[in-house]
Design a protein around this nucleic acid. Structure first.
Length: 516
RNA sequence: CGCGGGAUAGAGCAGUUGGUAGCUCGUCGGGCUCAUAACCCGAAGGUCGAGGGUUCAAGUCCCUCUCCCGCAACCA
């Protein structure tokens, strides 16, 4: 038996200082659709997500609620998981930085780096705002004052451990030169290269001013600080350094770390350098996607304009919300969210083009053929063009997905759907029926049914609930062999399939109803 | 003068090596009647940010200017 190729994809681990918004949902749904696509096309997939639970912010937030940090994060992380379930996110594992399995690996890494001299003790100099109990760097200060409360800050020195990342700058630059595709999109890579060219400083990797974190094994008053803790999740979750390293051996290095553009730097510089220092293989690719912006600017809690994904799912359904997110953000660029844009997408693409294609054609099949398809005759006229397009589209979609261009992949599928609607006008089956041109009628309706099957198979990774609603209408719910990627060869659909007109897939939404 | 990217129809974007400016949505007109007032066809609408230059020919190359946006280190 042939072994499947492996594919390992990750999302960032989100910080549970608050509930997640639609932006986080975008990242995770995008990763999910990649994971589902790879599974559909015959890969052995490992899809990881999780939560980054340590730090002063969490410690303080818990205190405000009179909870232990652990109680506090448990609650929020439950919310993360509920959201992912709601959005049909098919993760294989959920790593929490408070997991025991994670702690061990972080401590081991810290030890190793320390023993080989890549971590050393020094002092972290910063500015401290006593009322806010927060450290700021020189760069963060606003006019020399606290950026939060505008009061005076004082210079303090804190004993800290540092990671000698500056030592690896040359090696990093060489790596990027040899692996130009490592950072996507290219614009981000250029930013990172110029950042490193400006000179890398060593990285502060421990703190003594709070306790909520992983202890530095050889110096217990220190807690491991941020990135060494957080980034390690990508391999601690695979059981690296434990008695069972099977997943690690199988899936590392990761194929894709999918991250938002705000954390590209940490994933493309700190993480690879850490791995270099540890002599471990580097991930193959880091993709920094854009943000979903609001008309009113960036989404932020302080602006009170955060969009809750639960509300959207309640209102419009999972598949529609997923489709919108995946279709609306071109690769690497920002997209704009507005409820109007969402509804427009649902109406034009899902209701008018795709849903209506199924509705109109299934009606004709019932009306003119008693619901039973017939074997198609010899292709003529526009048939060839339609069939050609259907044959090419899966290849195109696969190419786009290889480049992680999800939006383009969807556009390609919908181009085929659009062609099918046009095909119906060209062939006018209602006229064929009237004139008793049965053979031609059979061919036309068969071709459209087959197009719908193609579109639905290809759309599955993006809208996982679609197939279970479409297959019964197409009469192939009991034929799993017709639901696979491999089945996307023309005319696989049996000639005697029984079609049954069913529910409207995506009802049109009245835009005016939004203005209430 | 920190590095880099933009400025193209009402909106959002494509425009390879320079040779009659395209796509999606929206608007208007027509067609069809199988369909979720859906679908198909057609039209209007752009001095391609401003100015200068190279060229037979520039959105596409060069220079200057204006305006936007990323990155510029320890909040994830």
């Amino acid at each position: 038996m042939m072994t499947k190729p492996n594919f390992y994809i990750t999302t960032p681990i989100y910080y549970p200082s608050d509930n997640l918004h639609i932006g986080h949902a975008y990242t995770t749904v995008a990763a999910d659709s990649m994971a589902r696509f790879k599974r559909l096309t015959g890969h052995d997939v490992w899809f990881l997500t999780g939560s980054d639970e340590h730090g002063q912010k969490i410690e303080r937030a818990a205190k405000n609620k009179n909870q232990t940090p652990k109680e506090y994060v448990d609650h929020i992380v439950d919310g993360f998981k509920r959201l992912w379930e709601r959005l049909d996110v098919s993760y294989n594992d959920f790593i929490r930085t408070t997991d025991e399995r994670h702690r061990k690996v972080v401590q081991q890494f810290f030890n190793t780096l320390y023993e080989q001299g890549d971590i050393y003790k020094s002092a972290y100099e910063g500015w401290y705002c006593t009322p806010c109990e927060t450290f700021f760097t020189e760069y963060q200060l606003a006019d020399g004052k606290c950026p939060d409360c505008q009061r005076e800050v004082e210079k303090v020195r804190e004993e800290s451990y540092f990671f000698r990342q500056s030592k690896y700058a040359e090696r990093w630059l060489k790596f990027i030169e040899e692996n130009p595709d490592f950072i996507q999109p290219v614009s981000r890579r250029n930013e990172m290269v110029s950042f490193v060219n400006q000179g890398l400083e060593d990285l502060c990797v421990s703190r003594t001013t709070f306790d909520w974190g992983i202890q530095v094994p050889f110096d217990p008053k220190h807690v491991v600080y941020v990135w060494v803790d957080a980034l390690t999740n990508y391999i601690s979750a695979l059981g690296y350094g434990t008695e069972d390293e099977e997943l690690y051996r199988k899936f590392w290095p990761a194929d894709i770390h999918l991250v938002g553009k705000d954390i590209v730097r940490f994933h493309t510089i700190i993480w690879p350098i850490m791995l270099m220092a540890l002599n471990l293989p580097l991930p193959k690719k880091v993709i920094g996607h854009g943000w979903l912006l609001l008309d009113s600017g960036k989404m932020s809690k302080s602006k009170g304009n955060v969009v809750d994904p639960h509300v959207l799912v309640d209102k419009y359904g999972v598949d529609a919300v997923r489709y919108f997110l995946l279709r609306e953000l071109p690769f690497g660029s920002d997209g704009v969210y507005s409820e109007e844009a969402l509804v427009k997408r649902i109406n034009t693409d899902l209701a008018n083009d795709y849903g209506n294609l199924l509705a109109r054609s299934s009606t004709m099949m019932e009306k003119y053929q008693q619901g039973v398809l017939q074997t198609p005759g010899v292709p003529e006229g526009p048939d060839t063009e339609l069939i050609d397009l259907a044959t090419k589209t899966p290849v195109l979609v696969q190419e786009y997905m290889e480049k992680c261009e999800i939006s383009n992949a969807l556009a390609a599928i919908w181009q085929m759907v659009g062609r099918a609607n046009k095909y119906l006008e060209e062939t006018a089956p209602w006229t064929l029926a009237k004139n008793g041109q049965t053979e031609r009628l059979n061919t036309v309706l068969y071709n459209v049914a087959e197009i719908i099957r193609f579109a639905t198979v290809m759309a599955t990774p993006f809208m996982p609930n679609l197939p279970s609603r479409v297959w019964p209408q197409l009469g192939i719910e009991d034929k799993p062999e017709l639901h696979t990627w491999e089945s996307l060869t023309w005319a696989k659909l049996p000639g005697d399939t029984t079609v049954k007109r069913g529910e409207v897939l995506f009802p049109r939404i009245d835009l005016k109803s939004l203005e209430v």
